[in-house]
Design a protein around this nucleic acid. Structure first.
Lengths: 264, 264
DNA sequence: TTTACATGGGGTACTGAGTGCCATAGCCTC
DNA sequence: GAGGCTATGGCACTCAGTACCCCATGTAAA
């Protein structure tokens, strides 16, 4: 009944020919068509029928590749989540290392996915910002990353007191920091250095939650304490291994204070 | 996938609200009928037509009071969010106090809303846990709380270096801690002390992110550092006001170490 | 070669959420 | 009693998402 159905231009592909990238990746065709339309008419102004019309496929096929319209906007998160899971399950960085370092490294996997396609990421960011349905969808995606990180930390913290609590709080903090860095890069139009922005943000979390680097000494003074103290009353924070000799602790403290002329 | 649709700003005013005399407020009748049915047939097994049939009103009226079916499950969050906003705008605890304390106190407002109706909260928790659509919706609700807290912190941290970053990270940490305590209470069936659970969880965040209590002294040693150190190699953390006399800092450190027989 | 089966895509019809528009019933004020 | 305001009810419609069955093609077994 419909008019001439669009030709399935795909000439039958000799299976052996160009073995790589062989069959028409319908999923990408759909995601591409969807994204174009979202840009042209907005997310809500685009129906699934519009998308499949442009892609030249049947409506039913869309839902075979994407469980919902929103999924077409984030076609790569599934893969990225799997990558993060694999990374953490393969022992994170090194199972003896700081778990916080491991989850920060895992978060960078996500960042790299964004950074791999700056223009796409920026456009999608703008789209997501103004479509409530997409914001909500994104929340559910982010939540899955967060739960993955929290699960890893929970395993690492094991039976430690409040281990599960710490795991969830740190995971939330890492995700928040990552997103802060990521978004500032996205807002800049994808111009600056994304990794640097995220590293800086994650640095704050590692400073606070990370295990103090024991290899580099048994006592360290973090001063000026970045951000601590509300402007009125700077503070210093000192972290030391519990079995460090007291003289070493005092030595470090004194030398750090020496650099602070404000101190007497 | 059921999505949370845009939030209609115009919340229709419940008729005859404060004037005591009025008949049963339709909004509550609907929420009540909806929740009963969700318990009986599940969330997805209940249609809006079912709800309005039980409530004895027209279908159109449902969507006048709830922008989506999901909203009927969380009928009081809107009010609670307004309460939190008002609390923070009225200066938090005391504008001179620690901003972290203020947002922790704000988080407790949410907790008290849950604790005010333990049975309802527990049932809703179980329902939410097993309905993906509701989990997603809840995320969007939680996110609004988080943004409210972050906004307050951002204002408090003002031009401070990385103020916005700190604000977002701390807000995320507070929300995660709050939810951890809340959920453990909900899982227990609403039996234990909800406030205690949440206080404990928030304590972790305040220890790490809070401003060291300056009223109670200019130097404090937090030992044993709760959770820090992965089991191998305990650490001590010391926080001191930058303009504290050095002798005072060393004094505090020594006295703290004296209580730790492991130290030499 | 023919048959059997697996795979991938298409079509149709249906459910149900959410919206726009209009009608109506009550109520308050001139 | 006429106007106007508000709360509600009643369609009718759009559109996402699903169930079920169809067909084409390619591959392996007979």
């Amino acid at each position: 009944m419909t008019e001439v159905r669009r030709r399935r231009k795909a000439a039958p592909r000799p299976p052996g020919a160009e073995s790589t990238a062989a069959k028409a990746p319908m999923r990408e065709v759909l995601a591409e068509a969807a994204f174009q339309l979202f840009m042209e008419r907005g997310f809500e102004g685009t129906t699934v029928d519009d998308i499949v019309a442009r892609a030249g496929v049947g409506r039913r096929s869309f839902f075979r590749y994407f469980p919902s319209k929103e999924d077409a906007v984030f076609p790569d998160h599934e893969r990225c989540l799997a990558e993060m899971t694999a990374f953490l399950e393969s022992g994170g960085i090194r199972d003896g290392g700081d778990p916080v370092d491991a989850v920060c490294e895992a978060a960078r996997i996500v960042l790299r996915m964004y950074a791999a396609n700056p223009e796409f990421s920026v456009q999608r960011y703008r789209l997501t910002r103004e479509v409530p349905g997409l914001r909500t969808y994104e929340l559910s995606v982010v939540r899955r990353y967060e739960r993955t990180l929290a699960g890893y930390l929970r395993r690492r913290y094991g039976a430690q007191r409040d281990g599960a609590l710490r795991a969830e709080v740190i995971a939330a903090a890492v995700v928040a920091a990552h997103n802060n860095g990521l978004r500032s890069w996205l807002r800049s139009g994808g111009e600056g250095d994304a990794e640097a922005a995220v590293d800086h943000a994650l640095g704050l979390v590692r400073e606070v939650w990370g295990r103090p680097a024991q290899a580099s000494g048994d006592a360290a003074v973090l001063t000026p304490a970045p951000g601590l103290g509300d402007g009125d009353g700077e503070v210093i924070v000192m972290v030391a291994s519990r079995n460090a000799p007291l003289w070493r602790v005092v030595q470090r403290l004194e030398s750090a204070l020496a650099e602070s002329p404000a101190l007497k």
